[in-house]
């Protein structure tokens, strides 16, 4: 699993947990793990990946956790199992474990997800957000997105959203980004995703990490800080030519196709 350029000498390790990657895998969020392995190798970091699915025990420690999106069917399948892991996940978030929860995974990392039938799925409560699918007559939020992240060093992110649920931030939640083109959390308040410590929730597929190398490096660095402590060496800048080009292309597509969200300063 090496990337486009040869891997540097591997001396650093991060422990990665993927949650339900055999269930919450409908919208190609696997690309996040593919990009993570490749980019980590370029940085001389070995990603040790543990897959955790329904009924599996959690490893005692993790530095980075990934969960992807699924349809309502898959969300119903995992919701109970995930909610039971809530206390562990919230504790991990508070001790600085890096996380990326995408779309359906993001929704279930909130307090609850009320689906189009009115049934409510309790979430893991990592983010102070709630999600409601407004149901028939309401269009899904579908399209290319460009947003500007409030997380330092991440900057502009590009991806694709496809969700029926509308997510609203609670009083203690911070958005992951502000939407420039697209819908974001709910199509109303301009927010996209949520952040708690080093945990990020977002609606963006694309896959997200392959074509947003700054975000990818941010997560790897956060995982290393969790693993190595305060003295963790920062990552040296390494070019990511294919990723940068794909990023620019995706931004151009969103500017051309998606609705512009004007922001007051």
């Amino acid at each position: 699993m090496t990337g486009a350029s040869g891997p540097a000498r591997v001396s650093r390790v991060i422990r990665v947990v993927t949650l339900y990657d055999d269930v919450m895998n409908v919208y190609a969020d696997r690309g996040n793990l593919i990009a993570l392995r490749s980019r980590a190798a370029e940085h001389g970091v070995q990603a040790e990946v543990a897959t955790v699915s329904l009924g599996d025990a959690m490893p005692s420690e993790a530095d980075l956790l990934l969960i992807g999106g699924g349809q309502d069917r898959e969300q119903r399948r995992i919701a109970g199992d995930l909610a039971a892991r809530g206390p562990r996940l919230r504790a991990w978030a508070d001790e600085g474990v890096a996380m990326l929860a995408v779309c359906g995974g993001f929704q279930l990392f909130g307090h609850f997800y009320r689906d189009a039938t009115g049934a409510e799925l309790a979430g893991a409560g990592v983010f102070d957000v709630t999600t409601v699918a407004p149901g028939a007559g309401w269009p899904r939020c579908i399209g290319d997105v460009v947003a500007t992240s409030v997380v330092p060093g991440v900057g502009e992110v590009a991806g694709f959203e496809n969700h029926g649920g509308r997510t609203y931030l609670g009083p203690s939640a911070r958005p992951f980004a502000m939407v420039d083109y697209g819908f974001g959390n709910n199509g109303e308040d301009g927010t996209e995703g949520a952040v708690r410590g080093e945990a990020i929730g977002t609606y963006l597929h694309g896959s997200l990490l392959p074509k947003n190398p700054a975000l990818l490096d941010h997560l790897i660095a956060a995982a290393l800080r969790h693993r190595e402590g305060a003295g963790s060496e920062p990552l040296p800048p390494i070019a990511a030519p294919y990723a940068e080009r794909a990023h620019v292309a995706a931004v151009q597509v969103a500017r051309r196709k998606s609705r512009h969200v004007a922001r007051s300063a």
Partner: peptide
Amino acid sequence: GDRADDLALRFALAGVAPISV
């Protein structure tokens, strides 16, 4: 194609870097 750069990135990540895009 319209998304040649996305595809090139996918092939590169798979260890099959394209010779041109």
